[in-house]
Nucleic acid binder design. Structure first.
Lengths: 155, 155
DNA sequence: GCCGATGGACAAGTTACTTGTCTAACCTTA
DNA sequence: TAAGGTTAGACAAGTAACTTGTCCATCGGC
């Protein structure tokens, strides 16, 4: 016991969750680079999916990703520089600039989805498809009602 | 239909894993602040545990966390500023400065562990203790070939 | 006693955020 | 219909947690 501390099972769970995320994302990231999408970071891909799912302004994207609108605008600028999105003034609201996924952006999402699904399939083989689905169901339950924090009140 | 894409269940799984991690860490972070450990970031706590486990120089800590020695030195400087560690010249090697966890650092580890365990207990109530253990077992299986690094603590 | 490897300091650059401020445009409502 | 609050986005500056690169003192093997 000297100099050693029993690891907290709660901290261990957090470690497992983050480790699982990185296990998936690192692999997808490496494969994406090999397929001509070098420099894409995981955050970019998730942001792109959010844009495609309807978060077509910087402010709305910020809300969906729980970051400030300025952070979202920076992400959009990066995506635009890589050619994954373009922007167009909204005819219905002169304040807005609507963000649209380009064909290249759509291709990134397609390839990315395939790679993520690939990792998931291999996981299904390792622990069994129904076990994986149970894991997903429980995780969804545990994350669906995140407690109200200052983060949620951001503009 | 153009403009609509079936969402990737693999990407969704990655999102769930990251969401689960953040759900835990955000809460622990808020509670730590309330208990006099304001400004502590998850990376600090993990680094502190590594120091306690024997990584008592900047270079060694960098190796364990898979970051550069400069990054590790910066983390140690932050921990020192907060009073969680102190440093002392190594009598056996004039190049080294040995890092030691202070009583306050030990208290942070204790409180942090308790808070993580607390979140885990509430999760156990929500989905059932045996379901949570199954989830952990499966996650451990799926990430067993990966070592935990500080890189994981970034997001 | 030389010489490559190691530990640490210092400096500058990068990434992905943050706060803060500002203006233009929109939406009530009285 | 004009005032008053809200919202979108641009611009600026700051921060955290890294990175690369350079430098020097010390160490250890031969």
């Amino acid at each position: 016991m000297i100099g050693r501390m029993a690891q907290s099972s709660g901290a261990e769970l957090a470690r497992l969750l983050l480790g699982g995320y990185h296990t998936m994302v690192d692999e997808v990231h490496v494969e994406l680079a090999k397929r001509g999408h070098k420099g894409v970071r995981p955050a970019h891909e998730f942001a792109l999916r959010a844009v495609d799912a309807g978060a077509d302004t910087a402010s709305e994207l910020g809300r969906r990703l729980s970051v400030t609108k300025q952070a979202a605008a920076q992400t959009i600028a990066a995506l635009e520089e890589f050619g994954y999105v373009d922007r167009e003034p909204d005819p219905a609201d002169a304040r807005r600039k609507r963000v649209r996924v380009t064909p290249r952006g759509r291709e990134l999402m397609t390839v990315g989805s395939a790679l993520f699904d690939d990792v998931r399939s291999r996981w299904a083989v390792r622990i069994g498809p129904e076990q994986l689905e149970t894991l997903e169901t429980h995780l969804a339950q545990l994350t669906e009602r995140r407690s109200f924090t200052a983060e949620d009140v951001r503009d």
